[in-house]
């Protein structure tokens, strides 16, 4: 489903940072891959490179067989198939919850308003905030906003979902409700790439864990392997610090 080969990315501003160094990875259909690592290790850049929100300097990325790095590829078509959930939710504050979920369906997928609304209501019910359809995002709690953001991404019927630290900006008591939605998605067979600090989620849901440090993939493996028998010293150090 996702194939990443030898990807490099260096930020020049505000100062030179080698964010991605020779990254290669793959994600199979239906697989849940959790990317973990310390701050500044390039996890988010890696995730954002997948739908070209960040353009890598070199390397290859294929999503569902489409070459993302090829300048001739219509990136908007790729992005419509790749749902993304952000740390800060990024809901559209001038639109109601319902409009947030229907907007891209109508504008990008060219669905009728009615069809979009039906899809949206079904998804809002799924994430458990159907009754908030008519309110504006700033009247919702962080957890509710993030669930709307997930519904908004799902409304496009994506083939892959990318989560960029979806629970990092939430109060502790709201993390559970968002993780529950993500677990449901994983159980339903959605292909997911999740950047997170939630080790419990990684252990429980991930099919594979990728550990990154200093822009490079240090270690990849099942949660079993990763949490119980890590090979690299850097991984051991990281785990000892957070567990």
């Amino acid at each position: 489903m996702i194939e990443v080969r030898n990807v490099y990315k260096t930020f020049l501003l505000p100062y030179k940072v080698r964010a991605l160094v020779d990254i290669s990875a793959s994600v199979e259909p239906g697989e849940v891959v959790v990317v973990i690592g310390p701050s500044g290790s390039g996890k988010s850049t890696f995730l954002r490179a997948l739908n070209r929100l960040e353009t890598p300097d070199s390397g290859h990325i294929w999503i569902d067989g489409i070459d993302v790095m090829n300048p001739k590829t219509d990136i908007n078509k790729v992005r419509a198939e790749v749902g993304m959930v952000f740390q800060n939710f990024n809901l559209f504050p001038h639109k109601t919850v319902l409009e947030n979920v229907t907007l891209a369906q109508v504008v990008v997928r060219k669905r009728s308003k009615k069809e979009a609304k039906n899809t949206a209501m079904a998804l809002l019910e799924k994430v458990g905030i159907k009754e908030k359809a008519q309110v504006y995002p700033d009247q919702l709690s962080g957890g509710q906003q993030q669930r709307v953001a997930i519904a908004r991404a799902l409304a496009m019927n994506p083939k892959v979902m990318l989560f960029d630290e979806p629970t990092s900006a939430l109060d502790p008591e709201m993390i559970g409700e968002v993780l529950d939605v993500m677990k449901t998605l994983a159980r339903e067979g959605m292909t997911m790439v999740v950047v997170t600090h939630e080790m419990g989620f990684a252990r429980e849901v991930a099919d594979r864990v990728i550990f990154m440090d200093d822009g490079a993939v240090v270690e990849t493996g099942t949660p079993e392997h990763f949490f119980k028998n890590p090979i690299h010293d850097r991984t051991k150090l990281f785990l000892s610090q957070i567990l």
Partner: peptide, 18 residues
């Protein structure tokens, strides 16, 4: 307007104009 708004809309497949 925060960059996140652009990123969110573009990540949904909207063009620059949309």
């Amino acid at each position: 307007i925060s960059r996140g708004q652009t990123e969110a809309s573009r990540s949904l497949g909207m063009t620059y104009v949309q």
